[in-house]
Structure formats: structure tokens, C-alpha cells
Simulated scan of single mutants.
Amino acid sequence: MLSNERMLSVLDLFDLEQPEWTFDEIGARIECGRSTLYRHIKLLVDAGLLMTVTESVYRLGPRIIEFDHQIRATDPLIRAARPLMGEIVREEAGVSLLCRRYRDRVLCVHQEASTTHFSSNYERGRARPLLRGAASLAILMHFPSHQLAKLYDQMPEALEDAGLGSSLTELRANLRAMRQNGWVTTEGQVTPGVTGIAAPVFGRGDEISASLSLTIPETGLSDERREALGKRILFCARVVTSASQ
């Protein structure tokens, strides 16, 4: 691993389960000498990406919040989707989500909620598995063939457990069937007792970029209601695709 890669990998250690790390704990996970690790951490602290809690104890720093504000204000995808998402949840009790693919996961980058008391486990900033939930499947079903093959080689058991196929051929067939409607729906895969409906958002060159979804606190929807919501979300996703490019 290159020195800069090793320094940035320090940030990956911090999560909800362990938001604070000591110097020695970081050293046990990052393979480098103490003097090199000290320089890495000093650079991260000076940049505001880490902050010192007490001597030799660190947390993620305030610069990350500054970056987050900039993303909220300037990301063309969020700016295009925000008004549509607000309109959706004014008409439907639930939560509308805008999600991007992030490594082998899907990350919610914006959320709009109705005034009813309902929350989704797919909240902004929280990464979720690529294989479960409508917001994720709307992205996965548009993966290029070579990326699907690589994904299947990496996690065949997980794909089978998610009901997506026990072979690469079956996986491709199942995702092809999902693409036929243009939108996808699931029940209770991320949050129990809810239905998720999502459609893909594309970037330049028709590359899959994100998904727009609606989560409602209902299950067992009638075919007519499911179809109507699916077409509505698909229309909005297409508007976001056009407006954000």
C-alpha cells in the first residue's frame, strides 16, 4: 500500500461502532512504523479530517461537516432531485431517498420525509448493502455485464441468500426481469413493515449513477397502487436524470 493510501485508510477505521480510536489502536490496524503513523495522523488533524479528543485519542474532524455542507449545496444531482422528492412526500406519507453507489454499497445522499411519524433505516449518510432494498436493486439491475460477473465472483453466496440467483446466468435473468418495468419494489428488506419503490437515475453516457425511491409504511399494496407509485417514481427519476446532466 502506498503511503498516501495508508494515511487515508486511517479514516476508514472510524464508524458507528467505534467512533474513537487511540494512537495504539490505529497502529495495530495500519501497518506502518510509529513515526510514519504519527506523521499521517498529524496531517489528518491539521487538515481537519481528524480531531484530538484527549491525548492520543481521535475522532472524525469538523472539516468533514464542511465538505458535507458543500455537497448539499452544490451537488447537481441533489439540487435536481430535492424539489421532486419534496413533492412526492407531500402527496404520499413516507420517506423519499436519493442514493448513490459507493464502493460495494449504496449510500443515501439526500432524504425528504412527510410530516407523519415514520422514519426509514436508510437515512442520509448511512451506507447499506448493495443487494437488498429497492433503492439498491434499482442501481444493481443496471450494472454492466462485466461488473455483474465480477460481483458474482466476489459474493456468490450473498447473492443467492438475497434471492438474486444461484448462478451468474440466473442473476442476469432476474435483473433483466426487474429492468423491464423500469422500476423495482421490495417489502421489508431494509426496514420491517414498509414497501420500497425505486427507479434508476443515470449519469452521462447512460451510466447508472443513483436511484430515486419512496418508502411507505405499508405492505401488501394492490397491483394498481403499486403500479401507480412505480410509474410516478420512474417519471421523477427520469426528470432528475435529465436535469442533473
Rank of each mutant, 00 (worst) to 15 (best):
R128Y: 07
R176E: 15
R232D: 02
E112Q: 13
V89S: 02
D24N: 13
M1R: 01
R63N: 10
G163C: 08
L84K: 07
G203N: 00
L159G: 00
V190S: 08
E87W: 08
R132D: 04
F67T: 13
G230S: 06
K42Q: 12
E207S: 11
F235S: 10
P192D: 10
S114A: 14
P76C: 05
A173Q: 14
R132V: 11
D104Y: 02
K231Y: 03
E17T: 12
T22N: 00
L168H: 01
L164D: 05
D104L: 10
T169A: 14
L43N: 11
S114K: 01
A173V: 07
E17W: 02
L37D: 01
I26K: 07
L97P: 01
T52S: 11
A73K: 13
I197D: 06
G86M: 04
I41V: 13
R172I: 10
R29F: 14
S56K: 15
D68I: 13
E170C: 03
I208W: 06
P217H: 00
I30N: 01
T169W: 06
V53Q: 08
L168N: 01
I78N: 03
K231Q: 15
A81C: 02
R176L: 09
C108I: 09
E31A: 09
E160D: 15
G230C: 03
H110E: 12
R124P: 02
L43I: 07
R29S: 09
S244N: 02
T36M: 09
A198L: 04
P200L: 05
V239R: 10
L43Q: 12
